Structures are given as structure tokens and as C-alpha cells.
Simulated scan of single mutants.
Amino acid sequence: MSPLALVSARTICHHRRGCNGDTEVARARAMATALVVLLTVAVAAASPAPSTLLLDSTTLAEDVTYEVTATTLIPENDTVVEISTIVADDDIGSASVSQAGQAGQAGDGEWRCPHGCDCAALVEGTSYNCSLPSGVLAFDEYGDGITFKCQSGVFRCAEVPPAASAGRRAGRGALRAALGSVTLRGCELPAEPVTCALTRRGARTTAKLIVQAPRTPLDPVHLRGLENLEMLRITDLEGARSELPLRALGAVPRLRQLTMNEAQLELKTPLPALPLLALELATDALTALPPRAFRALPSLRRLGLWDNALADLPEDTFEEDTLDMNR
């Protein structure tokens, strides 16, 4: 019988206030074994990502915690798991999992939730909630992207948990080197590049960066190393007085789409030469544009200025025959 089945059998007897006689012990063991088979079938039916560590009844151990999900079993932290509730009738009913609070050691090569973090399996990745020296950081990884949610404190690269320690697997949904999307929400950014945190999680660059509710303006150092960035969205500024991060844009020479929404934005000078194809400055409380505001954007094809307070536009703002304008 597998270790989990043994734990289950003991627990069944415990919740039945002991097993009297060989018959009841055998019945408890049979129920526990059926439960392990049920979990193993669920594992076998799954179609996991390559980075997922799959376990069956032959690899379960008493000194590792397993999170039971709809399709897979994932080791978590370093505590022992026990089956705490089993419906004791002729058929296996349901089971719930709780921590027994006993420390243990994960085996070599297994994935482990980082120290100081709570981890949970997502459909295509892993969610982390970490208490770090500089604050609380949550992030979700899903292979092609990552979302950082700064719940308090400063977003410091050195405190981001590394993707995997030497000799251990990365978590479910481990990042690719080149990402499709990175989101930073509510983060106070120190003077260090975003790529530093990506490197800690096993990635190098991204094609799309979304900065939501930023607590600091973007500087060139933040975008350093993102030479392949094509889309930058700065949103949820909640009407804060803001400026376009023009100096920072010099660090992303391949940028094609720029969005800045929900700010109190004031344009005093024309935009410098940029390779933008699309520019969206919507819901930014704009009341006026400077002369020749967008004439240095020869590749610009789409301009979004809706939900502003513009009474009129200077005649030389742009060349209309090259632009699809949304006001």
C-alpha cells in the first residue's frame, strides 16, 4: 500500500473513533486505496505543461505536502498532508486536504514553493504571494507572461524569488525567455531595469509591457534591456498629473504602440521622432495640443484622443492623409 493510502487508512480509523477488528481495518484500507486510485486516475487524465511535476500513487510520500486539484497533484511547501475527511459509506465520497504541521524535506529535483511565499496552481501556471523584506509582492506566471502585483512596499529585483534553485524544477507555467506580456500593477519602481526581475524568474525580455496604477514615473533605467518592446501601455493613473515618459522611450527603439490613459496629461511641446504606428492618449483631460504636436511621427497611422476636453486642433497637428484619427 502506498504511503498516502496508509495515512488515509489511519485517518479513517481516527475519524471513526478507532477500527475494531480486522474487518473494519481492512475496509478502511480498501477505502484509502480506492481514494489513491481515484487521485491517480485524475492525474493520468490530465494534459500538463512540460514544467508540471506529476505524481502518482507510487511516488507519494508522507513527508511532502501535496495540493489536490482537479487534474494534478503538486508538492507545496514542506509540511505533511493528511486526508482529514472521508465519507464512510459503501462508495468513496469526498476527501479534503489539510496540513498536519510537521516539517519535512522535498526530494531532489522536485519543485518547491519559495520560502516566504504561498503558492497556488492556476489553470496554466502558478500564483505566488510573497512576504518580502520591502513589502508584499504577488505574481502570476503563465508561460508566455507574468503579472506582478505590488501590494505594498518597493519592487526590488534582488527580493524577487528565483525561478528555481540549482537542481530543482521550475514551477508550473515557468516563463519562456522571450515573453508576450509583462504587467506591473501598483508598483513603486527603484532605479533598476525591469529586466532584472524577469531574469530572476527565468525570462529575458518582453514584447508588451503594461504599467497599471504606477507609483513612480517611468525612467530610461526602467526600460533598459527591453530592445524588443513593441507595445507600452500606462493605465489606471486615476487622474494624477502626469507627463509622457519621453526620455524613457529612447530605450525602446522598436516601440510601435504607446498608450497612456486616465491621467491629467499636459502636452507643452511636440513629440520627438519616434517609430510609433499607434498612439492613444484617451481620458487624459487634455485641453490643448501644441503646434505640430505629432508631425515628427512619420510612421503614425492611428491616433486616439477620445474622452478629452479638446475644443479644437491646430491645423498643422498632423498630416490627415496618413492618419486614421479617433477623437
Rank of each mutant, 00 (worst) to 15 (best):
S181V: 09
D284H: 01
P133I: 06
L73I: 10
A9L: 05
Q151K: 06
T269A: 13
A34M: 12
L39A: 11
G153I: 03
D108V: 15
S8A: 14
A70C: 12
R254S: 03
A9D: 08
V123I: 09
A166T: 14
A293N: 08
C130L: 05
H115A: 15
A46V: 01
A49E: 15
A166D: 10
A203M: 00
T33W: 06
L255Y: 04
D22M: 04
E262A: 13
A177R: 08
R29Y: 14
E319V: 01
L232R: 01
R256Q: 12
L286D: 03
Y128R: 07
R254L: 09
D236C: 03
A248V: 07
S8D: 13
N77K: 15
S299A: 13
R10N: 11
L289D: 00
C130M: 03
V123Y: 15
G304V: 13
V136K: 05
L55V: 13
V41P: 01
R301I: 06
G173F: 05
A9W: 02
R247G: 07
L137R: 04
L255V: 10
A164K: 08
T65C: 12
A88E: 13
S47W: 10
T199R: 14
D63R: 12
D91Q: 13
V160H: 00
N228A: 15
D324A: 11
D324T: 02
V80E: 07
R172D: 11
V154L: 06
S127W: 04
M31Y: 01
G125A: 05
I74A: 15
A44N: 05
A174V: 09
V25M: 07
L218T: 03
A309W: 11
L223H: 07
P314N: 07
P245S: 04
R295K: 06
V80C: 06
A61D: 10
L122M: 08
A285D: 12
T259S: 08
S94Q: 15
D321E: 15
G167Y: 10
T72F: 09
N326Q: 14
L38K: 12
P75Y: 00
R172W: 00
L237G: 12
D312T: 08
V252C: 00
D118T: 13
A106H: 09
T195L: 07
D236M: 04
L276S: 03
T33V: 12
D219V: 13
L35Y: 15
L300W: 02
A207R: 15
V97A: 04
G250M: 03
T183W: 01
A178I: 12
R17S: 09
L265P: 00
V136C: 04
C196A: 05
C130E: 00
K268Y: 07
C187Y: 06
G116C: 02
L323K: 01
A138K: 11
L53I: 12
